[in-house]
């Protein structure tokens, strides 16, 4: 019974008593860099610090944030959803097709889009939970299946108002609600930013304030231990992937509203951006795990950086490199500076 708790190595390995500077960088590093970046850009360019530009940055990060929050949920249960981009594309085509080709109303198109997202999430969940395929490969297969379904359904063509349908042309138009989602404002804030904000609040509350959030993280931390305390692990993993599909659908609806047309594969590019936003988020506030606030910061960080660099005529083709650099630094912070992985 002479155990000296304060000096045990396990205690030293935790962030509580780490060397102060490392600890500070680990917790606040990304936020400090983000703040510094904003200050520097604002001083260097008169337009950067304006309200209009701030809204522009948020608008640029809104869709990535929504998909990223979906990825975050699948990551909390120890999973990984590679199908989010393909799901977005599917939803874009479903919503555009519903209105333009079949002449459905806006709300119906939204419901159909959300249902398509849930179906894609269900496909993931079935492959992972019932077929017992590892998450990464299952969602890779689902990605191709979802993309392929989309392409087959529209014969590989884009959907736009007045498009040719063999002998006739499409008579449907984009519903007003989509026009609002694409270009509406509330008190000067773009509608997509408002939607993203609401999604963020919901996911933040789910993961941090509810028992379901606890259960998600418990499953991600140790599924065996979770089952041992009576958690129906399979059910919650299915729910996590359904939510990921649902948020991909929300992002897809924002995307189709923005362009007012349906291009196949338009959502695919969002996969990597969303995943990197969620991974950058690991390093925010020293969470060292997928978390809603971190993902939001991750999405805003990338958009801010690209916005600022563009303003200084940084070539657009260098953006990928800058994103890679950011992700690398963030991962370095959570894996190298953070407490050693206990797994």
């Amino acid at each position: 019974m002479s155990t000296d708790i304060q000096s045990s190595p396990a205690e030293r390995a935790t962030p509580y008593s780490k060397d102060a500077i490392t600890h500070f960088i680990y917790r606040y590093g990304l936020l400090v860099v983000l703040a510094l970046m904003i200050v520097v850009f604002s001083i260097a360019h008169p337009f950067f610090g304006t309200f209009a530009n701030a809204m522009f940055i948020l608008q640029a990060s809104a869709i990535v944030a929504v998909v990223g929050l979906g990825c975050t949920i699948s990551m909390t249960v120890g999973g990984f959803d590679l199908a989010v981009g393909a799901t977005m594309s599917l939803v874009v085509m479903v919503a555009a097709g519903a209105m333009v080709i079949y002449g459905f109303s806006g709300p119906v198109a939204i419901l159909l889009g959300l249902a398509a997202g849930l179906l894609a999430g269900l496909l993931n969940a079935m492959l992972i939970v019932y077929a017992r395929i590892p998450d990464l490969v299952a969602t890779l297969a689902a990605q191709f299946l979802v993309s392929g379904t989309t392409l087959l359904a529209v014969n590989g063509q884009s959907i736009s108002e007045g498009m040719s349908l063999g002998t006739t042309s499409a008579t449907g138009t984009f519903a007003p609600i989509f026009k609002w989602l694409g270009s509406g404002y509330v008190f000067g804030v773009h509608s997509s930013v408002i939607v993203a904000g609401l999604v963020f609040l919901a996911v933040f509350a789910l993961l941090n304030l509810t028992k379901w959030g606890r259960i998600f993280y418990a499953i991600g931390g140790n599924p065996v231990a979770a089952a041992a305390v009576g958690i129906p692990v399979r059910r919650y993993r299915i729910i996590a992937y359904l939510l990921s599909g649902l948020l991909s659908a929300v992002a897809g609806l924002l995307l189709v509203a923005r362009s007012n047309r349906g291009d196949v594969s338009v959502g695919d590019a969002y996969l990597l951006q969303a995943v990197s936003a969620a991974l950058v988020g690991y390093a925010v506030l020293g969470a060292n795990r997928a978390n809603a606030f971190g993902t939001l910061i991750g999405a805003v960080f990338v958009a801010t950086l690209i916005n600022g660099l563009t303003m200084f005529n940084f070539p657009y083709y260098a953006q990928t490199f800058v994103q890679g650099l950011l992700l690398g630094v963030a991962l370095l912070m959570s894996y190298t500076l953070g407490p050693k992985s206990k797994r």
Binding site: R214, N222, V224, A225, A228, P339
Partner: peptide, 23 residues
């Protein structure tokens, strides 16, 4: 391997099996 959730607080470990009582 079977009981511990890595990095989680003591509180989380105490409550995880009876979350219904705390929500």
């Amino acid at each position: 391997a079977q009981s511990i959730f890595p990095g989680e607080q003591l509180t989380t470990h105490a409550s995880i099996g009876r979350l219904d009582r705390f929500s």
